[in-house]
């Protein structure tokens, strides 16, 4: 599973995309967040961290179907 990264999450991870190994594949947004917190503790220091599934904000209960486009959304600061 590939996760798109932007802004500070790209800098924390050190690449534009993150691959979640098949054996760790999270079933929900909430499980993905738990996995990320373990792998990259610096993500927990952010003011907030949202996950987008197919370009929509997703809550923790939302499943992560294979083939979905998943992205991390750190605090936005446009405008």
């Amino acid at each position: 599973m590939e996760i798109l990264l932007f802004g500070i999450t790209r800098e924390i991870v050190g690449q534009n995309q993150l691959t979640v190994p098949t054996q760790d594949r999270p079933e929900t947004v909430g499980k993905l967040k738990e996995w990320l917190a373990q792998q990259y503790p610096a993500l927990q220091k952010l003011s907030s961290l949202a996950v987008a599934v197919d370009s929509e904000y997703a809550d923790d209960a939302q499943p992560l179907p294979s083939g979905a486009e998943v992205a991390l959304i750190p605090p936005v600061s446009g405008g």
Binding site: F6, G7, Y57, I73, P74, V76, S77, G78, G79
Partner: peptide, 14 residues
């Protein structure tokens, strides 16, 4: 429009 853009639109500024 500008207030809402700043809250939810995934754009980041360094």
């Amino acid at each position: 429009l500008i207030d809402e853009l700043k809250k939810t639109v995934p754009i980041w500024k360094k």
